[in-house]
Design a protein around this nucleic acid. Structure first.
Length: 400
RNA sequence: GCAGGGUUAGUGAAGUGGUCAAACACAACAGACUGUAAAUCUGUCGGCAUACGCCUUCGAAAGUUCGAAUCUUUCACCCUGCA
């Protein structure tokens, strides 16, 4: 193919923005909606590519910030690109690194405070490592303390070096404590101008690097919880020549569906929309219902590594004493490798003893659980049972 | 037999007259984790009580003292030198 990305819509849900479709990139086709697991440093922690593929994952998302620091985007370019480097033949994404770099600016460090009323207070003190201006972000590496500077241009150069099929524009991380005036300034002075610069650099790099498969670029919409800002941002970016859109952070969980709807009512229908950093079942339903096509999130993997496994009745901590002699599969409805082969007692034992296999098996289960949930939602949109499925699933999952 | 050292909560280990139900670590128990500074973090951890607090503890017994895990005596067990 000569195009970086093609998006086709197959089914639409009556009365809502939800749709099913396919995203095709030079490395394959993704049936949407889809959950995209996160392989931040060109690896999904604890899994081999074969194990990841067996979960049904159709793509993986890595991070420009982490790969810039180690091993460096030039090295990945030399290796033949991200997919070749990590031996993942399907579609790849990279996040721009903006979120990571700017989160250093609001990062927290554990501090023990012995002042005050004489009691030791363990607090989390701000440990600022990033400074933002309208041109870019200066930051210190969390690894070495070296100072670096990211601009939209450099982020695109890094992402082209890494060579993922789908890349994201460099945007500003805002948080909920930023007020309306700050959010306006963030859009007008940074996220939007940076989107223009990201797109220009991206187009230049796609031409310059015509020996490589063409890459796609998604613009990232911000605007926090403000309807006018979300619509304005979606309109502004929607008029630009992006291949798709990222729906970005700083939103109130309880209003997530509504906020996603504002954006998607303004965006061009024929381009895919990626919800950044979301994986809780209630959020996934809300976002898909309101027109999101793909999701990524570290949570299923991280939470799994820390011993919490998804079940149809909610998250459960596998280390609980009650599983000591429980020889049933973890979730008897689950078709994953872990549930097909191992008992709760064994999984608990692996976590109690700190065996690495426990983390692997829990990660396999959790990734499969969310991938399959989104696959099931896709099927329910196609056959018209979305609302029944949603109601049934969420009632079970969040039942006390 | 002589001389010296030791015995603290599930385990290891601080603590040598009051601020000690007793640091710290591990184990155990419970919880958190949403564009990964996360194989991380938080809480509980003698008994009863939501809590204020009350009760029983620092090998055993008997003492000294207003007050003992901390000092004295005897006993038990363990370790190290010399015989």
């Amino acid at each position: 193919m000569t195009k970086a990305l093609e998006f086709e819509i197959h089914h639409r849900l009556n009365g809502a923005l939800a749709r099913t479709g396919t995203i095709t990139t030079p490395h394959g086709t993704i049936q949407t909606p889809a959950f995209i697991p996160v392989a931040t440093q060109a690896a999904l922690k604890t899994l081999t590519p074969e194990q990841l593929e067996a979960t049904g994952a159709q793509a993986a998302l890595a991070n420009a910030y982490h790969l810039f620091l180690r091993p460096g985007h030039e090295l990945i370019d030399q290796a033949g690109g991200l997919g070749e480097f990590m031996r993942w033949s399907k579609t790849t994404f990279t996040d721009s690194g903006g979120f990571q770099v700017m989160s250093l600016g609001v990062g927290f460090k554990k501090v023990i405070d012995m002042t005050g009323d004489g009691e030791a207070n363990v607090t989390r003190k701000k440990d600022k490592l990033a400074w933002i201006d309208d041109d870019g972000v200066t930051f210190k590496s969390h690894l070495s303390g070296d100072t670096h500077r990211f601009t939209p241009e450099l982020s695109m150069q890094i992402q082209h070096g890494i060579g993922a099929d789908i890349t994201f524009a460099f945007d500003e991380l805002t948080t909920l404590h930023h007020d309306y005036a700050y959010q306006v300034g963030s859009l007008d002075n940074r996220t939007h101008p940076w989107a223009v610069r990201s797109l220009a650099e991206h187009q230049r790099l796609n031409e310059e690097r015509s020996h490589r498969p063409p890459q796609a670029l998604f613009g990232v919409i911000q605007g926090a919880n403000y309807e006018d800002l979300r619509r304005k941002s979606a309109k502004f970016l929607g008029d630009m020549d992006f291949d798709g859109y990222g729906l970005g952070g700083a939103l109130e969980k309880s209003r997530i569906g509504e906020i996603v709807r504002w954006m998607n009512e303004e965006l061009p229908e024929g381009k895919p929309r990626h919800m950044l950093g979301i994986s809780e079942p209630d959020d996934i339903f809300a976002c898909i219902e309101n027109g999101a096509d793909t999701f990524d999130c570290v949570s299923p993997a991280r939470v799994g590594r820390n011993g919490a496994l998804y079940t149809k009745h909610g998250r459960v901590n596998i280390r609980r004493q009650e599983f000591t002699a429980d020889f049933r599969p973890f979730d008897d409805d689950c078709d994953c490798y872990t549930c097909q082969n191992f008992t709760r007692a064994y999984l608990r034992h692996l976590f109690q003893t700190g065996e690495m296999l426990g983390k692997t098996l829990a990660t396999i289960h959790n990734i499969r659980f969310i991938v399959r949930l989104v696959d099931d939602i896709r099927a329910s949109i196609a056959n018209g049972t979305f609302y029944e499925f949603k109601e049934r699933f969420l009632a079970d999952y969040y039942a006390k």
